[in-house]
Simulated scan of single mutants.
Amino acid sequence: MEKIIDFFLEPYYSRATYLIILEAIAFVFGIASVIYAKNRNILVYPTGLIATTITVYLFLYDELMGDMMMNFYYSVMSIYGWWNWARKKNGSPVVPVSRTNKKEKFIGFGMFVLTMLVTYIVYKAYGSVIEFTNYIDIFTSGLFFTAMWFMANKKLENWTLWIIADIITVPLYAYRGWGMLSLQYLIFTILAVQGYIAWKKHLNNNLQTA
């Protein structure tokens, strides 16, 4: 047990205090954001915006360009999602929870492939040496990008993509020495499963009463 704790804490021994504090803040707001998302609460976006903005800086500092780019995108999409979720007509949300249709699935797949390509180009543009973990990063970037788009449009499938990407990210961040963020994504995985169940139940209830 002690070795496991040391594995997570050791990278922080030589890390600047302000970076640890920033990571802790991002951790708290990131968890809060997913909890709000699970409950279909619009506060998912302001809390998420705080977390992703901080994380952009952290990843840029560590030259993790794929992760940095994804969190920058999250920040932009948080603004769009905030606006989209806030729209109402006759007191009801304009964008209800729904499943993706064939066209949206096709668009999602296109975004997934395009994101991986762009992330790869960003790595090359910054002259980074692309290692095996970076290819995993490129793959998860595609998943996260598409998941965020689906979430902004309240598509149930967003949770499936979050679950897959979160599971992959947990060991990836642990390997990179991001102990708090690795733990955060473990919690994200659990919350994403709960989010899928909650949204599916909400969707089924709406279909029954329609």
Rank of each mutant, 00 (worst) to 15 (best):
R99Q: 01
M111Q: 00
V129M: 01
L43K: 14
M69G: 04
I50S: 00
Y73F: 13
M65E: 04
I130C: 08
F109D: 12
W199A: 00
L191M: 03
E23I: 01
F145R: 03
T115G: 07
V56Y: 06
A147F: 04
L117D: 09
W149E: 03
A51M: 08
G91I: 13
L60F: 15
Y73A: 03
L191W: 03
Y36T: 11
F150Y: 11
G108F: 02
G142Y: 15
W199V: 04
E23D: 14
A210I: 10
I20W: 06
V94L: 04
T140H: 10
E157G: 11
A192N: 08
L156W: 02
S182Y: 05
R87C: 03
T47D: 04
L19P: 03
N39L: 11
L207N: 12
S92R: 14
G177C: 05
L58W: 00
K103I: 15
D6E: 15
K89I: 09
H202L: 03
A125G: 12
E23Y: 00
F150C: 03
N41R: 14
L186K: 03
L64V: 04
V122C: 06
A147M: 00
K103E: 04
L203S: 10
M70Y: 10
T53N: 09
M180V: 14
S33V: 14
F72A: 10
G195I: 05
Y57I: 08
I168N: 11
S14I: 02
T189L: 09
I138F: 14
F150K: 06
S128V: 05
D67Q: 15
V170P: 04
Y74K: 01
S92D: 08
L207W: 11
V170H: 07
T55L: 14
V129H: 14
I167M: 07
A26V: 11
I50G: 00
S182C: 13
A37H: 06
L186N: 05
I190G: 02
V34I: 12
A125N: 14
T140V: 07
L161P: 08
F106R: 12
G48K: 05
Y123K: 03
Y173G: 08
R40E: 15
K102I: 14
A192L: 05
A152C: 06
V56K: 00
P46R: 06
T146H: 13
G177T: 07
A192V: 10
V170Y: 12
K105C: 11
N204F: 01
I50M: 04
I42L: 13
M65A: 00
T100H: 02
F59L: 05
H202K: 02
E10K: 10
I136Q: 02
N39V: 11
I136L: 06
L191E: 00
M1V: 15
P46D: 00
K102Q: 13
D6R: 15
F29M: 03
T100N: 12
S128Y: 05
I190D: 08
S182K: 11
F132W: 14
L58E: 13
V193W: 13
Y126N: 13
N39Y: 15
M68Q: 09
T47C: 10
S33M: 12
M69Q: 04
W83N: 08
L9D: 10
W82L: 10
L203R: 07
F27M: 10
Y135N: 09
Y73V: 04
